[in-house]
Simulated scan of single mutants.
Amino acid sequence: MPCLAAVWLCSLTAAGHDRACAVRAWLARTSDAERARLGLPWDPFDGYRLPSAATIHRFLQAVDDDPPSAADGDSGQEAQPAAVQAESVTGERVAPTSAVALDGKTSRHAKRADGSRVHLVGVATHGEGRLLGQIEVDAKTNETTVFRRPLRPLELTNVMVTTDALHTARANLDWLVTAKHAHYLAVVKRNQPTLRAVLAALPWADVPTGAVTRESGHGRAETRTIKAATVRHVDFPHTLQAIRIHRWRREKGKRPSRETVYAITSLAFEQAGPALLAGFARHHWHIEDRQHHVRDVTFGEDASTSRTGRAPATLAIFRGAVINALRAAGYRHIPEGRRDHVTTALNLHGFP
């Protein structure tokens, strides 16, 4: 199993090797020294024995939700939340030292035997978008019921966890604060109608604007205005501040649009002011930009029709591991990193 995990990891790193037959072709081009580093079995008569394409593919069915140990090589790097810049604090209250985002992703063309689509829930760091964990959601459940599984193995003390509106559930956010000693910033939409009504009714006109950010590029300009207010009467576990984000967006060829988003956080004003909260809310989408989008565009994950057993979820784990390794090596663009490691993937992942 570790040997086959190493084969998949290193072959996926090299550009153009995204299927079992291509993995087998990459393996056939390796040298004896590289095969020894991969841990392939040795036969005194025939030399190193190479697994068939069928064996390579069957391996995908046997991997669970946790990344195989071989996927980490021997680089000694651990998947830890990336540091974020914290504001100055007073008293005993401390600002979060790092932040992670939890979000789901559907593999649109990968279907189970019953016809349902494969859905994955992952956790990634803000900033570099490093994948820390991922699980497959059963066809008969939803993301909310598996909220704790990808977060449970992580050290989240004093870490900010950002989620979308789907995960704004009392039990999960209470567990996050009481059991994991973490903080949360959760979006509130119409799936929590009472809470959203309370937030919308706050006297926002009397609350000063805390931060304004402007971005432009690719034919789009966006301005975000954020206000944050300390609240004591909101009936939701550990909520200390309410947040309102107003977005004004203009895209080329389209009419300007406006959107108001509400959120809650377990951070007090002394721990995080509006500017820091705005950064947390904006950086939540790093999991989309730097994990999900890259896996779809560079690795063709969304277009992949692999559908046997756990193959789609397992391949997603390996793709995330490759992205992590290339980003740690200093690559900003993953396709460039894959092209540079067609023959040196073992070195990238630290195999002895």
Rank of each mutant, 00 (worst) to 15 (best):
residue 281 A to K: 07
residue 281 A to S: 12
residue 281 A to W: 05
residue 282 R to I: 10
residue 282 R to E: 11
residue 283 H to S: 14
residue 283 H to A: 15
residue 284 H to V: 08
residue 284 H to K: 07
residue 284 H to D: 08
residue 284 H to M: 09
residue 284 H to R: 08
residue 285 W to V: 08
residue 285 W to F: 10
residue 286 H to P: 10
residue 286 H to V: 15
residue 287 I to F: 03
residue 287 I to C: 04
residue 288 E to D: 09
residue 289 D to V: 13
residue 289 D to E: 12
residue 289 D to N: 15
residue 289 D to H: 08
residue 290 R to C: 03
residue 291 Q to G: 05
residue 291 Q to I: 11
residue 291 Q to T: 13
residue 292 H to L: 07
residue 293 H to I: 06
residue 293 H to V: 14
residue 294 V to Y: 12
residue 295 R to A: 01
residue 295 R to H: 05
residue 296 D to W: 01
residue 297 V to W: 11
residue 297 V to I: 15
residue 298 T to L: 03
residue 298 T to M: 09
residue 300 G to D: 06
residue 300 G to S: 10
residue 300 G to M: 00
residue 301 E to Q: 08
residue 301 E to P: 04
residue 303 A to R: 15
residue 303 A to G: 14
residue 304 S to N: 08
residue 304 S to D: 04
residue 304 S to W: 06
residue 305 T to Q: 15
residue 305 T to A: 13
residue 306 S to G: 14
residue 306 S to I: 14
residue 307 R to A: 15
residue 307 R to F: 04
residue 307 R to W: 10
residue 307 R to E: 05
residue 308 T to C: 12
residue 308 T to H: 09
residue 308 T to F: 07
residue 308 T to L: 09
residue 308 T to E: 11
residue 309 G to D: 01
residue 309 G to A: 07
residue 310 R to H: 01
residue 310 R to S: 02
residue 310 R to Y: 05
residue 310 R to A: 06
residue 311 A to F: 03
residue 311 A to P: 04
residue 311 A to K: 02
residue 311 A to L: 05
residue 312 P to S: 00
residue 312 P to I: 08
residue 312 P to A: 02
residue 313 A to R: 09
residue 313 A to M: 09
residue 314 T to R: 09
residue 315 L to I: 11
residue 315 L to G: 01
residue 317 I to F: 02
residue 317 I to K: 01
residue 318 F to G: 03
residue 319 R to I: 05
residue 320 G to I: 01
residue 320 G to A: 03
residue 320 G to P: 00
residue 320 G to L: 00
residue 320 G to M: 06
residue 321 A to Q: 07
residue 321 A to T: 02
residue 321 A to D: 02
residue 322 V to S: 06
residue 322 V to D: 01
residue 323 I to P: 02
residue 323 I to R: 02
residue 324 N to W: 05
residue 324 N to I: 03
residue 324 N to S: 05
residue 325 A to N: 13
residue 325 A to L: 09
residue 326 L to H: 04
residue 326 L to I: 07
residue 327 R to H: 07
residue 327 R to D: 07
residue 327 R to K: 12
residue 328 A to H: 14
residue 328 A to Q: 14
residue 328 A to L: 15
residue 330 G to I: 02
residue 330 G to H: 07
residue 330 G to L: 06
residue 330 G to T: 02
residue 331 Y to P: 08
residue 331 Y to F: 02
residue 331 Y to T: 10
residue 331 Y to G: 04
residue 332 R to K: 13
residue 332 R to Q: 13
residue 333 H to C: 04
residue 333 H to Y: 13
residue 334 I to N: 03
residue 334 I to P: 00
residue 334 I to Q: 06
residue 335 P to R: 08
residue 335 P to N: 11
residue 335 P to H: 05
residue 337 G to W: 12
residue 337 G to P: 11
residue 338 R to T: 01
residue 338 R to D: 11
residue 338 R to V: 08
residue 339 R to H: 14
residue 341 H to D: 08
residue 341 H to E: 11
residue 341 H to R: 11
residue 341 H to M: 00
